[in-house]
Design a protein around this nucleic acid. Structure first.
Lengths: 185, 185
DNA sequence: TCGATTCGTTCGGTTTGACGAACACTCACG
DNA sequence: CGTGAGTGTTCGTCAAACCGAACGAATCGA
């Protein structure tokens, strides 16, 4: 039910991704992590099966949590209308369905809020930490929200997710409340 | 900044803890994971530095997310009624308040669901992965939920959190929907 | 008391991950 | 063109992870 796939390829991809994000070469990373560059080369090629210590030192050198290197990735604006939805779980003996909106990875930190809004424009230009993502499920009322220039109007049960590190705003069209999950890495 | 300590000892401890929780022997676990029991013996002893594949297969055999084996450790029923709440964020120039319900630590994995329930008892005895925690914010209707023998009735905007690894159930008193955040480590 | 079973640990042998050197390649400089 | 510094890859060597078998201890029946 869990453990979707052998993480060999995932590690290779994550490793390359994080290294390029840091803007350093294989040789440089090898030096910082105290490893042979040949080892890194093979790892990024998907060949090989690193030991915990090896992978750990890479996490340290890259400044990312260990689990970031072993679990997959996902962002963008995405809306799920009430009732629609992707993967639905249906309880065998029960009258309820649960719709998966966003799967979390271990390295993401998610804070859970309930948000109450009164009508009127309410900018939140603050543009949070880079890499943060917002998830909103409207509980009641109507809210227009999203990144500036790409806002969407939502009603009860509607879900939206969008990057939190760009200017965006919330605007209640009537007294409203919503569940907000703030995700930062 | 992160990466507190070499995870050698952590893995040894986590491995033993999870295995004993599953109530199986080293030999049995070795058989399920397709490893030599000698390997496990040494791993639990703290000797050795397992490869990713080895540790992964152990995670699968134990039915535990990979990261649970490599990261350290840290629940109860808690209810926040609509309008009440702990720390409230108030936007300076805006008409909205956000109430922090649950702060996420890194290393916890949180999946976001919307749940629709029809009236009638609906047991979910399944008792998910050990260490999992459920967070629920009711969007509409009325729901009675919580661990068996300790359920609470909730209305729109109410929040509850409780351990997900014990028998519990959802019971909609009328057609309802809710936001569910499933947290497992 | 003697198998028979299961447990966990210890001991050689084999596989393989990590290392370091050599390699081909590109770019900048003279 | 050299030549030097940078890149990433390939190859042989060595240490260590992993395996399988053998071991002592504990439990349970016959």
């Amino acid at each position: 039910m869990q453990q979707p796939a052998p993480p060999l390829a995932t590690i290779a991809a994550a490793l390359r991704r994080e290294r390029e994000r840091a803007g350093i070469s294989i040789a440089e990373l090898a030096r910082r992590a105290g490893l042979a560059k040949s080892t890194l080369s093979q790892l990024e090629a998907g060949t090989g099966n690193p030991s915990i210590e090896t992978l750990w030192s890479l996490g340290v050198a890259l400044g990312v949590p260990f689990s970031r290197l072993v679990e997959p990735l996902e962002t963008q604006v995405r809306v799920v209308r009430a009732g629609e939805g992707g993967t639905r779980l249906r309880a065998d003996q029960a009258d309820f369905v649960a719709t998966l909106l966003a799967a979390g990875s271990p390295h993401t930190r998610r804070d859970l809020y309930v948000m109450e809004l009164e009508p009127g424009p309410a900018r939140d230009a603050a543009a949070h930490i880079p890499g943060s993502v917002e998830h909103i499920v409207v509980g009641g009322g109507r809210i227009r929200t999203g990144p500036d220039g790409d806002t969407v109007e939502l009603g009860p049960g509607d879900y939206i997710t969008f990057p939190g590190d760009v200017p965006h705003h919330y605007e209640a069209l009537e007294p409203s409340w919503a569940v907000l999950v703030m995700e930062h890495r």
